[in-house]
Each structure stands twice: as structure tokens, then as C-alpha cells.
Design a binder for these strands. Structure first.
Length: 488
DNA sequence: TATGAGGGCGCC
DNA sequence: AAACGGCGCCCTCATA
């Protein structure tokens, strides 16, 4: 059997050369990642040093030793199924996705770049004028001096960075927005500069000569089982703002194809409902009730029909906050209510969804007792600090609460990808008429030949919704368009 | 010239 | 004072 590190890169080379991929293979980095997904570094050097207590030598013998050790541990930790049925099949699919890449319209991006540069120049001049001098707007240090010393903007309520300087982050700028005219220009400058430097310019650089960009998925990149994406990271492309939509418009389907996005709807909350078996939350999903409105109606004690958009917004923040183990401070900050009110809402929330609180306590106890937590499929994460005291305990507890949810999400997505690839291979469409391009945690992005789009859509939706049985239904929404920015 | 910390910010 | 889980990447600036 083929045993090595970085098989995905190897497979890409072979696939490009038309060489077949072996039936069975064992990726060492992924195996050691499953054993301790927090370690961060799964290089042959680190792994050999830690597990064999010897520097890595690229030999059959070393690889066999590492495999023997990893297999023993995978078995001991009951991670074999995840390794063989999820991670190994996924590896080859990721290679296919990376090879496919996603098309970008380089001419359009270039035009967008020019437009942004022009606007940024105007903003820069306006900022200098307000400041009365030129300075490096991108330097938080210099910007802080301009705002709070030279312009003497009131620092009432402005937070400090960890090195004790006044912050100039977006929250601060919004807070002091009414205190000086310069702030409006700064806010716009920040958004545009980010877009230009992080996305618009690098994407053009990274496109191949066909105008396609090929991200690299890191299968060992997270502690929860998610994938990460780099060079470029296509999992954090802006969404929502006007400029973000313009940027997404640059991601285009090939002629005769469409971009199709499939989204798991509120998957993490469905997982939460399923794991906790909270009767109220399960009922909501089983009856297709708007979950954020339901939460609002409970904590505000009004009928669902009487829930205002503002109340629903708070309900949504609460629901997501629970998934992350949020405290009153964070809730107050992100929702805008007072600290006292935040505490009341959270108390009320756990009163309404009693099982959620119980479940959270169970998970925390697990982390304390064993030093790790697992999800339903056996994926594990070591939680340090949960047995100690102080800030680190709280951090460990939050990570512990989030892990079973986020990792289950990751598992469902991985299983869906594997199922979809299998289904598509039956018709011969796999990575031809139907190309899986991106996975973005709860979303899959495809490029699909318009002639078969309806049939393909049915196959994909069905696979995603049925690949894993939760105690509540899993729902998928789809969006189709000729690019990633505008849907039909 | 390279590196890494710090500040900041994009996404789910 | 006070960060809510998981990521990757940009620029600045001090240091090597």
C-alpha cells in the first residue's frame, strides 16, 4: 500500500500525467492529525521526531514504522472509520477540486482594481486634508496618533489594544464616527483597501493562464475537522456589501455552464438541536418554524407573529452565541444591549431551551474528566486547561462546547462530498459536466453544464440532505447563476 | 533581506 | 479590563 505524507500533492501530479491513483493509500500526515488535531504541524520532521524520537529519514522503513504506530493509535481511539471512510476518500476528491480551479474574469477584475484605486486616491486625499498632514493610513500606530492626539478626538469608551495603545479597529471607528468627519472616509478606506490588497490583486496574480485560480485545501488545517483553504483562501471571499458582490461577480462559470451554490440551511443549529435533543428546538426544526423568531418569541415572551425584526436579530445572535459558548459580555457587545440585559436574555434562553444547558454541562464535564471531547462519529479534540482554573478554563470550555457541533458539521459536509462524487461518477459527469469547485464549511460550489443542471441539482441536493440522519431534517438551499455574485 | 509579532479583518 | 468557536492574509514595524 502507498504510505506517505502529502498524498494529495502526489495525486495531483499523477492525475495531470494521466497516471492512475491506487485503490488503497495511507496518508501519514492526516493520520497523525486525527490523533491530535491541535498540534498544527504535521510535517514528516515533526511527526518522526515526536513519535519515533528520531529525525525523519525518507525511507520505506520510517514510513512503515510511522504507519504502524498511527494504525495502532487510530484503532485505540476508534478513529479508523473516520480515517478510512472519510478522510482517505476525501483526499482524492480534494485533489480533483484543486486541479479544476475556479474561473475568474481577469479583465473585469482589472477594471475593478482601477476603479478602486481611483476611489482610494480620493479617500486618501480627503483623509490627509482632515488630518492636516500626510501619514501612513495603514499604520494603526500612526492613525491612532492622528485621531487621538493631533485631532484630539474624545477617547471616551475606546478600547485599548493588548499593548496598551488606543485601538483603531472598526468597532472603535464606528463608536467615534460622530466625533469627527474623518471617520467616514477612514471606514470606506479600510473596506476598499482590504478588498484590493487581499482579494482583487492576489487573485489576478494567482490565476493560471486559463484564468482559473486553484486554492489548496489543507486537510490537516483545523482542530475541528473542517478544511482550510489557502493560496488563495477561497473560504473568506467577501459577501454582502456592494463591493463584495462586485468581487464575487468576478468568479465566473465557463461558457455553457452555471455556477451553482448549495447551502446547508442552519446546519449548526440543527446539529445543536439533534445533539441536545432539546424538545423545543427539535420541534421548531421538525415543524419548519423560523428558529431565530422562535427564540425571540421565547426570550421576549411574545407570540411569534409579534416578533419584530429587531427582536429576531437578537434571537439570531443568541442562537449563534450558544453554539460558540458566548458569555454576557460578548452578547452585549455584538447585540448592542446592556450588559445587564444581556445576562437576562441568556438566562432566559437557557430557561427556554433547558436541554441545551444540560448538554453544555455534560460536555464541559467530559473535557474536565478526560482532557478531550469527541463528536458522535468519534472525531476527537484534546482540550487542555479545562481541569485548571481561570481564563484558560473558560477558553477550553468554549472550545469544548463548540467542537461537537462544528466537527459534526464538517463530517456531514465531508460525507456529502464523498456521496456526491460517487453519484456523479455513475453518470460520468464527475468533474466534467458537473464540477465540484469549492467547499466553504456549509456550502458547496459547483460549475454545472446548463444542459443537465436540473438533474444534477436533484442528485446533489438529495445527497446532501440524506447523507447523514440527524434527529431533525437537514435542508439544503440552492442558488444558480452565471457567476458567484448574482443569482437567477 | 528575512522573520515574526501585532493590529486588523475577510469568511463560516 | 473584560473575546464567542474555527480559519488565512494583509500591512507595519521592530529585530535579526
Amino acid at each position: 500500500m502507498l504510505v506517505d505524507f502529502n498524498l494529495k500533492e502526489q495525486f495531483k501530479v499523477w492525475k495531470r500525467a494521466g497516471k492512475p491513483i491506487p485503490k488503497e493509500y495511507f496518508d501519514l500526515g492526516i493520520a497523525f492529525w486525527l490523533l491530535d488535531p491541535d498540534a498544527g504541524d504535521y510535517s514528516p520532521e515533526r511527526v518522526a521526531q515526536q513519535y519515533l524520537q528520531t529525525p525523519f529519514s525518507d525511507s520505506e522503513k520510517t514510513r512503515t514504522q510511522l504507519r504502524a504506530y498511527a494504525e495502532k493509535k487510530l484503532k485505540e481511539y476508534k478513529l479508523e472509520k473516520i480515517f478510512w471512510d472519510m478522510e482517505m476518500p476525501l483526499l482524492e476528491i480534494l485533489a480533483d477540486m484543486e486541479l479544476a480551479g475556479i474561473g475568474i474574469d481577469r479583465g473585469y477584475l482589472r477594471a475593478l482594481e482601477k476603479e478602486l484605486e481611483k476611489r482610494l486616491e480620493t479617500l486618501t486625499k480627503a483623509i490627509y486634508k482632515h488630518a492636516g498632514e500626510t501619514f501612513n493610513i495603514n499604520s494603526p500606530k500612526q492613525l491612532g496618533e492622528i485621531l487621538f492626539q493631533r485631532l484630539k478626538i474624545d477617547t471616551q469608551g475606546v478600547k485599548k489594544t493588548k499593548t496598551g495603545k488606543v485601538s483603531t479597529d472598526i468597532d472603535t471607528l464606528l463608536l467615534i464616527q460622530d466625533r469627527h468627519k474623518i471617520i467616514a472616509s477612514l471606514l470606506e478606506y479600510r473596506e476598499l483597501f482590504k478588498l484590493l490588497s487581499t482579494y482583487i490583486r492576489p487573485l489576478q496574480e494567482l490565476a493560471d493562464d486559463q484564468g482559473r485560480v486553484h486554492t489548496h485545501y489543507i486537510q490537516t488545517g483545523t482542530a475541528t475537522g473542517r478544511l482550510s483553504s489557502q493560496n488563495p483562501n477561497l473560504q473568506n471571499i467577501p459577501i454582502g456589501s456592494e463591493w463584495a458582490t462586485k468581487l464575487r461577480t468576478a468568479f465566473v462559470a465557463e461558457k455553457g455552464y452555471r455556477i451553482a451554490a448549495f447551502d446547508y440551511s442552519q446546519i449548526e443549529l440543527r446539529i445543536l438541536a439533534s445533539l441536545t435533543q432539546d424538545p423545543e428546538m427539535m420541534k421548531a426544526f421538525n415543524e419548519n418554524v423560523d428558529i431565530h423568531a422562535l427564540t425571540a418569541s421565547k426570550v421576549f415572551k411574545v407570540a411569534i407573529a409579534k416578533v419584530t425584526p429587531e427582536m429576531r436579530r437578537l434571537g439570531k445572535t443568541l442562537n449563534f452565541g450558544v453554539v460558540y459558548g458566548m458569555g454576557a459580555m460578548a452578547f452585549a457587545k455584538s447585540s448592542g444591549v446592556s450588559f445587564a440585559d444581556a445576562r437576562k436574555f441568556i438566562t432566559e434562553y437557557f430557561n427556554d431551551f433547558k436541554q441545551i444547558k444540560i448538554w453544555q454541562e455534560e460536555i464541559k464535564a467530559q473535557a474536565r474528566t478526560y482532557g478531550y471531547v469527541t463528536n458522535l462519529n468519534g472525531r476527537r479534540r484534546i482540550i487542555l486547561g479545562a481541569a485548571g482554573m481561570g481564563r484558560e478554563v473558560a477558553e477550553g470550555e468554549r472550545a469544548a462546547i463548540n467542537m461537537p457541533i462544528q466537527s459534526m458539521n464538517a463530517d456531514i459536509m465531508k460525507l456529502a462530498v464523498i456521496r456526491i462524487a460517487k453519484e456523479l461518477k455513475k453518470s460520468g459527469w464527475y468533474q466534467k459536466e458537473v464540477r465540484l469547485l469549492l467547499t466553504i464549511h456549509d456550502e458547496l460550489l459547483f460549475e454545472i453544464n446548463e444542459h443537465i443542471i436540473e438533474e444534477a441539482t436533484r442528485i446533489i441536493t438529495k445527497a446532501m440532505e440524506s447523507v447523514y440522519a440527524l434527529r431533525v431534517p437537514i435542508k439544503v438551499t440552492k442558488k444558480i447563476g452565471e457567476n458567484w455574485g448574482a443569482y437567477e
